[in-house]
């Protein structure tokens, strides 16, 4: 079994409305049945596209700049005017305090990749702001503080 050769599921098509009748998606020869135990729920979330976010220039944020621990915080109050895209309001509600991208993804229940794109867009449109620690510490200070903190758990 090669590392790349097996995949949980092959996505057959994007617009299957009419084509599914005559051409049902099915596993290739049933060979990989064991690997089909998991279905991928189709997403209907408008996350925009990575390309829609301008390439990173000074002061802007693209999805690639948002690592799992990138911190963002709501820059506006969640409102109702995004009712076609409720995920954004959910993100805002969870980001009233500074939150990492990983936490937002877990709380919103969407894959990190999608949340990254949404967050990048929301930073671009001013809904979210990226933020850094209030008191940035050097690595050595962090290590010592972590050690003390862990010991006192």
């Amino acid at each position: 079994m090669s590392a790349e050769g097996r995949h949980a599921r092959r996505l057959t098509d994007r617009g299957t409305d009419s084509s599914t009748d005559g051409n049902e998606p099915r596993p290739d020869d049933g060979r990989e049945d064991a690997e089909y135990e998991r279905f991928l729920r189709p997403y209907a979330v408008d996350v925009g596209t990575a390309e829609a976010v301008p390439p990173t220039t000074a002061g802007t944020t693209g999805p690639a700049d948002l690592d799992l621990l990138a911190l963002v915080m709501a820059a506006r109050t969640p409102g109702r005017h995004e009712w076609l895209r409720p995920e954004r309001e959910t993100i805002l509600n969870h980001a009233l305090r500074a939150r990492t991208v990983a936490e937002l993804a877990a709380e919103v229940g969407l894959p990190v990749g999608q949340v990254r794109v949404m967050v990048a867009e929301m930073v671009a449109d001013g809904s979210l702001q990226r933020c850094g620690p209030s008191r940035p510490l050097g690595r050595q200070d962090i290590l010592h503080a972590v050690l003390v903190g862990l010991r006192s758990l």
């Binding site: 996505l11 991928l40 990983a102 962090i142």
Partner: peptide, 24 residues
């Protein structure tokens, strides 16, 4: 149709060290 997707679960926990540091 030429792409395949794989879903990877990512689990993480959190420990608040102090007011300045949160460890994941």
């Amino acid at each position: 149709e030429n792409k395949t997707t794989t879903t990877v679960a990512l689990d993480f926990g959190r420990i608040t060290i102090n007011d300045d540091i949160v460890l994941y």
